Amino acid sequence: MTSITMLIALFVVIIGVCTAQKVPVSVYYESLCPDSQAFISEQLYPAMKSPLGRFVDLKLIPYGKSNRSTIGSDVEFTCHHGPNECYGNKVHSCAIEHIQVNSFQNQYTRESLILEYVNCLMQLTRNFPDQLFPGKRCAEQFKLENWQVIEACANQTEGSKLLEKNGELTDTLKPSLTSVPTITFRHQQDESQALALVNFRSAVCKKMQSPLPVECTSLPNSAPVQSATTYLMGLSSLGLILALKI
């Protein structure tokens, strides 16, 4: 193997390391919870829209402190903020299940369009239930072609089954869910929850492995950690030195 080939291989490995790391993040929330609304609109959404968002593998789980009971083949729910929240949780669940990106929405991925829609719902339901639930309004804003599918899902058995599944996921939390929203990193609850509520970006960065991306090393008050760019430059220099010696 020539020195140039070795250097190229080195860069491929480094780039793979730098781009492969994604932090699994799960957000357990409620559709009409003020704290959930604030976290999603003020912390999660801006962070996911920033360059840091590409390092997050996000899972949204609307359920929170709801309770459920099975009556025959039906599932009935009692929700933290009342019946309107049960409907809202179903709309969220059905949207997460059914949203698709059409050929005219090249600016979105399916995941980013879901986040746009959920954020829209959370912003517009801050005055709910004094107004109509904004499921259709947000669907029109983001040109979702299958709002009717989402609406039908929320009003039928499918919505109940999806919400039941979210309840089962919530029940598996250890320790059990006591506050909403609850944010887990790498499927674990720890002290990062408190930080995530006020500075989600920093919480994500604390869960990433070195070398950290520049999106983390450039955060205000961040510790002086060697950035990915610096790391690449250093290894590049090393590769060139080795090439000269060969």
Rank of each mutant, 00 (worst) to 15 (best):
L124E: 10
P24Y: 10
Q156E: 15
F55G: 06
A47F: 09
N127H: 09
M1I: 04
F185V: 10
K174R: 12
N119W: 05
N84Y: 09
G135H: 09
S236H: 03
P220K: 04
S210P: 03
N127Y: 07
S50Y: 11
Q37P: 12
R110L: 00
F200P: 10
N221T: 01
V180G: 02
S103T: 04
V225N: 08
R110S: 04
M48V: 08
N119M: 02
N166D: 09
P34Y: 05
I40H: 04
R201F: 00
P181T: 15
S69D: 09
S227T: 05
S210A: 07
V25E: 02
N221H: 08
V91D: 12
C153I: 08
S227Q: 02
P34S: 09
Q209D: 08
D130Y: 09
D130L: 05
L219Y: 07
A154F: 14
P62K: 11
V17A: 00
Q105I: 10
T178V: 03
N102E: 01
N199R: 06
V75F: 13
L197G: 06
L244F: 14
I4P: 01
F200E: 13
M48I: 07
Q100G: 01
S192W: 05
I96M: 07
G88R: 06
N199T: 02
A20Y: 13
L132S: 11
A38G: 04
I61H: 09
F55R: 15
K245N: 01
Q100C: 01
P211D: 03
N84E: 14
D74L: 12
V204F: 10
F77H: 11
V149A: 11
Y28T: 05
P134C: 05
T78S: 11
L162K: 13
L113I: 00
L144G: 02
L132P: 00
E111F: 00
G16Q: 08
Q107N: 06
E151T: 04
I4K: 14
T157V: 11
S41D: 10
C18P: 01
I40F: 07
E215D: 12
H92D: 10
Q21V: 08
Y29I: 11
Y108V: 04
H80E: 11
C120D: 04
N199C: 00
A139H: 01
M122E: 14
L144N: 06
S179H: 15
L219A: 09
T5A: 01
A203M: 14
A95S: 13
A223G: 10
S218Q: 15
W147C: 00
G72R: 02
C79K: 09
P224I: 04
S192N: 15
Q226V: 11
C138H: 03
C79Y: 08
I96P: 12
L60F: 13
S236P: 00
Y108C: 02
V13M: 13
N102M: 02
I96Y: 03
A152G: 13
F104G: 06
S41H: 06
E164C: 00
R110P: 05
A95V: 08
D190L: 01
N102A: 00
L124F: 05
Q209Y: 07
I61M: 15
Q123W: 08
L7F: 12
L58Q: 03
L163N: 03
A152K: 15
N146C: 02
